[in-house]
Design a protein around this nucleic acid. Structure first.
Lengths: 110, 110
DNA sequence: TAGCGTTATATTCTAAAGAAAACAACGAAC
DNA sequence: GTTCGTTGTTTTCTTTAGAATATAACGCTA
């Protein structure tokens, strides 16, 4: 049975800003308060996770995350208000796309 | 400036059936009547082109291309009626997606 | 001050995708 | 029956994304 599938993301002149994988990563950071825990939960290397977050952060007008190195519990990372807002907007877009592809799948005649 | 971008394709249980790259490849085969010319025009290796076409062909109920090895001009490859029809349907889907992402881009507020 | 778990960063290793190259088979044309 | 340009197939090489590893800096806690 055929299905319409796809990816969707938001980019600017500097590359990808946010897509599904990055959104999940932000969700995990929000959940665990830690980049290393977020990465581990996704079986992603810390470096890869850090680079993705850094990329997002640099492309955003205002930072999406706030990090602390050292201190209680070694430090940690949490989402800013901006981070939460961007995440919300992405999921809205993502849902729209899900509807589109579901609709397209059902009207597929091959 | 932020833009919504994406990929879209049609797949079944055996993997990708057709996406943008494969559609372009079919268009080139249609144009040149030859897999090797089509591949060359896309700076794609013959093997890669052949594998993509073979994959599409095996996943389709009816073959999308008809090949001749040897003979006048060394042989060649042309699209079947089914191939032309599938291509048409894919571009319809693709246009729908282009509209979606254009619309999504314009209603983006970040 | 030593220990800790984190962030931050550089370096090396691995796996996968695709390119490149080589070669056989094909069949019409001459 | 030789030549030609194609399809079909195998094998090797290259590139690149990401994993893995290593190490420093940080700052609270004890």
């Amino acid at each position: 049975m055929y299905k319409v599938k796809g990816n969707i993301w938001i980019e600017n002149e500097n590359g990808t800003f946010i897509g599904y994988g990055r959104a999940i990563l932000l969700e995990r950071v929000k959940e665990f308060g830690s980049i290393s825990e977020a990465a581990k939960s996704m079986k992603m290397s810390y470096k890869h996770a850090w680079e993705k977050l850094d990329s997002m952060n640099r492309q955003s007008k205002r930072p999406l995350i706030e990090t602390v190195a050292g201190g209680k519990g070694g430090g940690g990372t949490k989402l800013t208000e901006e981070g939460i807002a961007v995440l919300k907007k992405f999921w809205l877009l993502y849902n729209g796309f899900e509807n589109f592809s579901k609709q397209a799948t059902s009207s597929l005649d091959l």
